[in-house]
Design a protein around this nucleic acid. Structure first.
Lengths: 303, 303
DNA sequence: TCCATTATTTGACTTTAGTCAGATATATGG
DNA sequence: CCATATATCTGACTAAAGTCAAATAATGGA
C-alpha cells in the first residue's frame, strides 16, 4: 500500500478527526457530563428502546441503567416497559428533556456553522463535497456481502430494481417475462447462488451465479444501487461470485449483457473476461463474455 | 447559510469524526491508559518541552506533572531541566520509551491502513484527495491576518516570494529595482500598512496599502503562498486592506496589475473594482483599477 | 538585593467512567 | 408447569481523569 496514502490518512485522522471530534465533544456537554449528554441526545425526540441505545453507544447494561436513572431523576426522560415484551423498556424524552435535546441540536448546528463560517461560498461547496465523498467511501468499507435465498424479500427487491433499471436503459424497454430471464432457468443444472451486498443492513447490490453445467457457471443479475456506485462494489461482487464458482468446482464462467450497459462491459473486460459468441437465446443479450477461472490465489477477493 | 451544507457537516462530524476518532483511540492505548499513551506519543522521538506538551494536550499542569511521573517511574522517559531557563523542563524518551513510541506509531499506521484496505486503487485516491481537501479547507479557517512592520523578516520574505513569482510569470521577467516598486514610493504621502496572513505562525500571504493622497489608497504586493491558494484568502486580504483604507479615512482605492495575472483581475472585478486609465508610471503595469469605498457595513469583512 | 512573575510540583480532593457478579422479572418452547 | 433464556437492575467495586490551592524554585528587572 502506498506510503504517502497512509501518511495522508494519518494526517487527516490526527488533524481533522481528533481535533474536530474533541471540539465537538466540548461543544456538547452543556454543563452535564458528556456520557449523560450523549445518552440524552441519542434517545432523540422519537424515543428509543434501551437495547438499541446500549448497542449504539456500546455501554454496559448496568452502567446505562444507572445513567438513565440519573436522567429520570432529573425529570429529563421517562422509562416505560414495552407492552409487547414486558422485559424490554422504552425511553422517551419529557418536555424538559426535549428542551435540552433541542439545545444540543442547536449546538451541533452551531458547531457545523462555525466550521463553514470562515469560508467563502465556493470553499463551502468544496468542503461539503469532500465530506460527502469521505462518508461515502468510508461507508463502502462497511459493505458486507452474504448469500441469501433467491426468494427472500430483499433479494426480490434487488432484482426488481435491477429489472426496472434495465427497462429504463434498454431502447425498447425490458420485460422480465420475455426470454431467458424469469423462470427459464430451471434447466439441467439447478445449482444457484444469490449474493446480497448490504450497508447498515440495507441491501445495496446483488448478483447471482447459476450452474450451466458441471464446470460452467453463469453470472446474472448483477446490480448496484445508484447511491452505492463508484465504490468498486461491482468488482467486489464479481470477485465474490467467481470465488463461489471456483469453490463449486467450476472452471469457467460466462455472462451476457446488452450493448447499452457500457460500464458493465468495461468491468468485465478489466476483470479478465473475453468476448465470445452467443451461447444462449436471451433476446436482450447483445454481447457474451467468458472467463477461465484459475484456482490460484491472486484472483480471490481479500479477507 | 445553506441548511443542507450544515446537515452535511453534521453528518460528517457524527459519522466520520466521532467514529474514526473513537476507533483510533481504542487502537492506541496498548494496555496503558489512554492519557498516558497519548502523552508518551506526543513527546515524540525528538522530545518536547513540558510547556509545549501541556498546550498541545490541553492538560492541567498538576495533572501532567503526575502523568510524567508515572512514565518516568516506568523508565519510559526522562525529564531534565532546560539549561537556558532552569525553571523549564524538557522531556525525552528513553530507549524503552522509544520502543513503545514505535509501537504506537506502527499502530497508527495499521489503523490508517485498515481504512484504506477495503478500497480499490481508484477509491483510495479519491479518499486521500478528499482528506487533503478537507484538511486544507479547515486549515483555511485558522488563517489569521495582522499588521506588521514592512521591514520585518517575514514581510521581506513574503515580498521576495512575490517578486520571484512576478519574475517567473511576466514575459520579460521582473526587476524590483525598475520603476514604481522598490523605493519610489517615498512621495507626498508616507502612510503605509503591511498585512501578513499566517497559518500556524507561518506566513502564507501578504498585502500592502499605501496612501497616495489624503483620500486615495493604493493596494500593492498582494501575494498568496501557492499552498494556500484556492481558499478565498486573497479575497479576505483585499477586504481587510479596504477596511484599513476606510478606517484611515480614504474614499477610494486604486491598484495596478499586469495582463498575465488573470486571477488577480478576476478577483478585482468581482470585488467591485472597475478599470480606469493609467494613474502611475509603473512600467510593469498594464491595467489599472479603482473602487469607491462605501462606508456602509455590507462590504466590511466579517469578524 | 528584593520583589513580582513564571514554571513546575505536591497534597488533597471530586467526578466520571466503567466493570462484574448476582438478583429480578419476564418470555418461550416443551 | 418447568427449565432455560433474555432484558434489565442493584450492589460493590476500581481506575482514570481532572481540579484547585499552596509550596518550591528560578528568572528578570527596578
Amino acid at each position: 500500500m502506498d506510503r504517502s496514502a497512509i501518511s495522508r490518512v494519518r494526517s487527516f485522522n490526527r488533524h481533522v478527526t481528533l481535533r474536530v471530534g474533541a471540539l465537538n465533544d466540548s461543544y456538547l456537554g452543556l454543563g452535564r457530563p458528556l456520557g449523560l449528554a450523549r445518552l440524552l441526545f441519542e434517545v432523540g425526540p422519537d424515543g428509543s428502546d434501551l437495547q438499541n441505545l446500549r448497542e449504539r453507544l456500546g455501554l454496559d447494561s448496568g452502567y446505562i441503567s444507572r445513567l438513565l436513572k440519573t436522567l429520570t431523576d432529573d425529570r429529563l426522560l421517562v422509562v416505560e416497559t414495552d407492552p409487547a415484551d414486558r422485559r424490554r423498556r422504552r425511553v422517551k424524552l419529557t418536555k424538559l428533556g426535549r428542551a435540552e435535546w433541542d439545545a444540543y441540536d442547536a449546538l451541533s448546528d452551531d458547531f457545523a456553522r462555525s466550521m463553514l463560517q470562515p469560508l467563502g461560498e465556493r470553499q463551502r461547496e468544496r468542503l461539503t463535497a469532500a465530506m460527502a465523498e469521505i462518508e461515502l467511501l468510508l461507508n463502502a468499507a462497511s459493505i458486507t456481502m452474504a448469500l441469501e435465498p433467491e426468494d427472500s424479500e430483499d433479494a426480490k427487491r434487488c432484482v426488481d430494481a435491477y429489472f426496472q433499471e434495465l427497462d429504463q436503459r434498454f431502447k425498447n424497454g425490458f420485460d422480465p417475462g420475455n426470454g431467458g430471464y424469469a423462470g427459464a432457468t430451471k434447466d439441467r443444472e439447478s445449482r444457484s447462488w444469490f449474493l446480497i451486498a448490504r450497508r447498515d443492513g440495507q441491501p445495496v447490490g446483488c448478483g447471482a451465479l447459476k450452474g450451466l453445467d458441471a464446470t460452467t457457471g453463469e453470472i446474472k443479475r448483477m446490480w448496484i444501487a445508484p447511491d452505492a456506485r463508484g465504490l468498486g462494489l461491482s468488482r467486489r461482487l464479481l470477485n465474490e461470485l467467481e470465488a463461489l464458482a471456483r469453490k463449486a468446482g467450476m472452471t469457467r464462467v460466462r455472462l451476457d449483457t446488452n450493448g447499452t450497459l457500457k460500464e458493465a462491459q468495461a468491468l468485465y473486460r478489466k476483470a479478465g473476461y473475453r468476448e465470445i459468441g452467443r451461447y444462449n437465446d436471451n433476446p436482450y443479450a447483445e454481447l457474451w463474455f467468458e472467463k477461465d477461472l484459475v484456482t490460484e490465489g491472486r484472483e480471490t477477493s481479500a479477507a
